[in-house]
Design a protein around this nucleic acid. Structure first.
Lengths: 124, 124, 124, 124
DNA sequence: GTGGTCTAGACCACA
DNA sequence: GTGGTCTAGACCACA
C-alpha cells in the first residue's frame, strides 16, 4: 500500500487519490482488483471515513476505479483512464517547469535534475 | 511589474511573493531597489494593505527583501537569498519529477516537455 | 502554559511564539503534542484569532510546529527545528555579549551576572 | 566614527545613540569633545535631521552629552552618566540571559560563548 | 470543528 | 509617508 504524510500540507484526500493512481501506474493494482472498503481504509489510516469517501468519489469520477453497490470498489481496466492519468501528469509537469523557470532554473539544470533523480524508464 | 489572477485559487499573498521573486530572478529588480510601499501596491492591485504586508513579511523572512520602518522596503543584495530561492526551486522540481515518474511519465517524455515548454535560458 | 504581558510592548504575536518555544525547550511540550486550536487560544488569551494564527504561521515557518487543515496544530518532532532554535539563541546571545562589551562590561562582570541570574541548568 | 546598518531592523535613532555611547566607553570621545552638528551628521549619514535630533535629545536626557545653545553638543564628563550607561548595560545583559535561558542555553554554554566572543578586558 | 486567507479600518513607531 | 500590529468579522477548504 502507501503511506500518508499528515505533515506535508497535501490534503489527505489528495494523498489517497494519488496513492491509488501510483499503485495502478506501477502495476501493483490491476483492472478488477478490489479496493479496501471506505471504512476499512479509514480505520487503517486513522482518518475520517468522509475523507476516504471523497477520495473514492474523485477516483471514480476520473474513471480510475468503479463502484458496485453492495459489493465494493474496483480498479477500472479502462484504457481511457490510464491515458487521463498520463495527460494530467503531463499538465502538472508543465506547470512545474514554468514554476521552476520563473524561479531561475535553466533548461539544462532541469534536464540534469531529471537525469539524476528520475527512476523512470527512459521510454514508455 | 506582474499581474494578479484573482480566479486562480492561488492566494493573492503568494502571487505577490512569487511576483517579486521572479522580478529578482529575471534581474528586473536588483539589490537596493526600492519596492512600492505597502499602501501603494495595495491600492494598485485593489487589494487590502494587510495582504501586501503579509507578502512583504514573507519576502523579508526569506531574506529576499528587507524593510526599514519609516523608509520603505528594498530588494536585498544578499547572495544567500538568491541561492536559497534556487535551492528551493530545485527541491520543488525534484518533487515534481518524482510525482511525474509515479504517474508513469518516462524520462524522455519529461525532457521533451521541458524542451517544448521552457522559456528559460539554456544555461545560467 | 504561559502568560501574556500586554503592557510590555513586545508584540503579542511574538510572545505567543516565544511561549511555545520555551514550552518545547523545557520539554513540557513534545513532538506530536497537539496545540490548542487557534480559536481556543485566542479566546483563552482574549486576543484576536488572527493574532494567534500569525503566531502559529511563524512557528510553522520555523519548523517548530506543523499544522494540518481540519485537524489541528502539532509540535514538530523534527530535531532540526530544536537545533535551529538553539543556534539562533546562541547568535542572539553573542550579539548581546558584543553589545555589553561595547558599553564597558568586563567578561568577569558578565559571567557573574550569569551566575546570579540564570535559572538554567548548568549543562545541557 | 561608527556606521549605520539600515537593514538591521534596529531604529536608526537607537543606532546613533549607541554609537556615541560606544565611542565614549572606548575612550575615543572624552569629556568636552564636541559632537558633529545635527545637520552635519544627518547629511553625513543621509538621514533625516529629525532623527539625529532625537538621538541627541536621548543622549542629553541620559546625561551622556550636553548641549549649549548656539555652540553645539559636547560629551559630558560627568561620572554619573558613565555609571548610568554601565547599569543599563547590565540590565540589558540580564534580559539577554533570561531570553537565552528560555530558549534552552545552559549557563555553561553562555559562559563559554562569553570566553570565545568577548573582546572585553577581564576586569573593569 | 480545524487551519488559512482576506477585507476594513484603527493605531503605533519611526523618518 | 513608511512599515508593522491588532481587532472585528466574513468566508473557504478540509476532516
Amino acid at each position: 500500500m502507501f503511506q500518508l504524510d499528515f505533515k506535508s500540507g497535501v490534503p489527505i484526500c489528495d494523498q489517497i487519490v494519488n496513492g491509488f493512481i501510483k499503485l495502478k501506474a506501477l502495476g501493483v493494482l490491476k483492472g478488477g482488483d478490489q479496493l479496501p472498503s471506505v471504512r476499512a481504509l479509514a480505520s487503517k489510516f486513522s482518518v475520517n471515513p468522509n475523507t476516504v469517501q471523497k477520495s473514492y468519489a474523485i477516483l471514480e469520477a476520473n474513471g480510475i476505479i468503479y463502484s458496485v453497490k453492495g459489493k465494493g470498489s474496483f480498479i477500472s481496466d479502462d484504457e481511457t483512464s490510464a491515458n487521463a492519468v498520463l495527460e494530467s501528469a503531463k499538465r502538472e509537469f508543465i506547470a512545474a517547469i514554468k514554476h521552476a523557470t520563473d524561479l531561475g532554473l535553466s533548461t539544462n539544470e532541469m534536464i540534469n535534475l531529471i537525469k539524476q533523480n528520475s527512476t523512470a524508464k527512459e521510454d514508455t
